[in-house]
Simulated scan of single mutants.
Amino acid sequence: MKVRNSLKSLLKRHRDNRMVRRKGRIYIINKTNPRFKARQG
């Protein structure tokens, strides 16, 4: 899992990426290719 300041650029890297808010943190999750997982903050 990558930790980044800005997730907008990572969101466009794969078409299955989804942006999710959990417990005040913003995550990018990808069911088909889990190597794109990322978290902000």
Rank of each mutant, 00 (worst) to 15 (best):
Q40E: 14
R15W: 08
I28F: 07
R4S: 10
T32V: 14
Y27A: 02
N33G: 02
K31E: 15
R4I: 12
R21Y: 05
Y27D: 00
R4H: 09
R13N: 10
R15K: 14
L10Q: 05
R39V: 13
I26A: 09
P34M: 12
K8A: 09
F36L: 04
I29F: 01
Y27E: 01
L11W: 04
K8H: 08
I28C: 09
R39E: 05
V3Q: 14
I26K: 12
A38R: 05
F36E: 02
R13P: 00
Q40I: 07
R18F: 09
L10C: 06
Q40M: 15
N5V: 14
A38H: 10
R22K: 11
Y27Q: 01
N17I: 14
T32Q: 12
R39N: 01
F36Q: 01
K23A: 09
G41K: 14
I28N: 03
K2W: 06
G24E: 02
L7Y: 04
R22N: 03
A38G: 10
A38I: 08
M1V: 15
R21Q: 09
H14I: 07
N5F: 13
V20E: 10
K2L: 10
N30V: 07
K8M: 09
F36T: 06
L7D: 01
R4Q: 13
N33H: 13
R4L: 15
M19R: 05
K23L: 04
R4C: 14
K8S: 13
I29H: 00
S6D: 15
I29L: 06
R35K: 12
R4F: 11
R35L: 13
R4M: 12
G24S: 02
V20N: 02
R4W: 02
K31S: 14
R4E: 15
A38E: 10
L10Y: 12
P34L: 07
H14S: 08
S9R: 03
N30K: 07
I28Y: 05
K23Y: 04
N5Y: 13
L11H: 09
L10K: 02
I28R: 05
F36W: 09
N30W: 11
M1P: 11
K31P: 07
D16E: 12
I29R: 02
N33I: 11
R18G: 04
K31W: 12
L7C: 11
L11R: 06
S6A: 14
R39Q: 06
R22H: 05
S9P: 02
L11Q: 10
N5C: 13
K23D: 08
D16V: 03
P34W: 07
K12R: 13
P34V: 08
M19P: 00
G24I: 00
S9L: 07
S9A: 13
G41E: 10
K31L: 14
R18N: 09
L10R: 02
K12V: 05
R35H: 09
R21W: 08
I28D: 03
L10A: 12
R22S: 04
I26E: 07
R15A: 10
A38D: 08
